[in-house]
């Protein structure tokens, strides 16, 4: 076991735990954001750099601070380590920089994006971003392409977190898509656009933090905040069969895996559950799904959001995560 202090809060965690996961054990606002790390996918993380934190004391044995900010998702804790996240202006400044970099080539058209309302980048930029872009040049754009007949790739929105390639590597036997080219010309592609037909390929959609990979069978049917999410399950011989049904009236518009509070899927689902059972009768409904208030899904009126309210919402969220009584919602 190792004792670590993060933003002044001490926690004891198993050896080898990363700083990020130690912070998640504390919970609340000291948890660094993560855009590329994904706890249920091996070897993810380290790339996006939004989770950077400052290690002011390396360990009890070697109390020297680490010379640079470190990626908390990939840095293991040491006994006696002291970490600063939101209490370090340097970290917040760097994070602001990273968010700006991530948004640099990202289209600013959230209102028409299919992921709007459940996009990690959108949430992140509200919290850490700068108001106005300083980027004057043309943004990188790509045509939308199909990866197989169920997934749409809109590379323009991709932040190159590589999560989808790890899904393909770790959940499917045959990875046919990957990262091509290099630098800021990198792109996710199947190259000659081979189809991804594997029982678990649909999970790429769920792990994608932005609207780059979306479910073609759902697209354009409805904005996500007009749908009602329900926890449901069925007996499946391929996967756990535990899903979220995104419904409108009696219609199942979309099926996805369940995500935890950090927007991560812990139990992946198969393509059959995802695509082939869009009928309430196929499912045992468990009840409404609790959606993190943090996200704009719960806002109902995305277009009307003003920053003031959003700020309040974030504050509410912070209070909530601290375990205090949740104040009444300010939404109409």
């Amino acid at each position: 076991m190792a004792k670590v202090t993060i933003d002044g809060i001490e926690v004891e965690v198993a050896d080898g735990t990363t700083i990020l996961n130690a912070a998640r054990q504390i919970g609340g606002e000291v948890v660094p954001p993560a855009m590329c790390y994904y706890s249920s996918l091996k070897d993810t993380g380290g790339k996006c750099r939004v989770c950077l934190v400052k290690v002011t004391q390396g360990s009890a044995k070697d109390p020297r601070p680490m010379p640079k900010l470190v990626a908390s998702c990939r840095t293991p804790v040491m006994d006696g380590m002291v970490v600063q996240n939101i209490t370090s202006p340097e970290v917040l400044e760097a994070r602001k920089g990273v968010v700006e970099f991530l948004l640099l080539n990202h289209p600013l058209d959230c209102p028409v994006c299919d992921q709007a309302g459940e996009c990690d980048l959108q949430n992140l930029s509200y919290e850490h971003g700068v108001g106005k872009t300083r980027y004057e040049e043309d943004r990188r754009t790509f045509e939308k392409i199909d990866i197989g007949d169920k997934i749409k790739l809109h590379m323009t929105r991709c932040i190159l977190c590589y999560r989808c390639t790890f899904v393909a590597d770790q959940l499917t036997q045959e990875r046919v898509h990957g990262v091509l080219n290099r630098g800021d010309a990198s792109e996710i592609s199947t190259y000659i656009e081979k189809a991804v037909d594997n029982d678990f390929s649909g999970n790429m959609i769920d792990v994608c933090p932005v609207g780059a990979l979306t479910d073609k069978t759902f697209r354009f049917k409805s904005r996500v905040w007009f749908t009602k999410p329900l926890d449901a399950h069925r007996d499946c011989d391929k996967c756990c069969g535990k899903v979220v049904l995104w419904t409108k009236g009696d219609d199942v518009l979309r099926v996805s895996a369940r995500k935890d509070q950090y927007n991560e899927v812990k139990e992946y689902i198969c393509n059959e559950c995802r695509y082939d059972h869009k009928d309430m009768k196929d499912w045992t409904i468990e009840g409404p799904r609790h959606i993190d208030r943090h996200s704009v899904i719960s806002q109902n009126h995305y277009e009307k959001i003003d920053m003031q309210k959003l700020k309040l919402d974030i504050d509410r969220q912070l209070t909530f995560q601290k375990g205090k009584q949740l104040p009444e919602t300010t939404n109409p």
Binding site: E174, R175, V176, H177, G178, V179, L180, N181, R182, T190, Y191, I192
Partner: peptide
């Protein structure tokens, strides 16, 4: 060409995407 890359993949017994990823880097 994609065919050439597929051929190299077959020689090394790896997936074609592994070759495309590398060749384009």
């Amino acid at each position: 060409s994609p065919e050439t890359m597929d051929y190299v993949a077959s020689l090394l017994n790896i997936k074609p995407i592994e070759v495309y990823e590398v060749a384009s880097f």
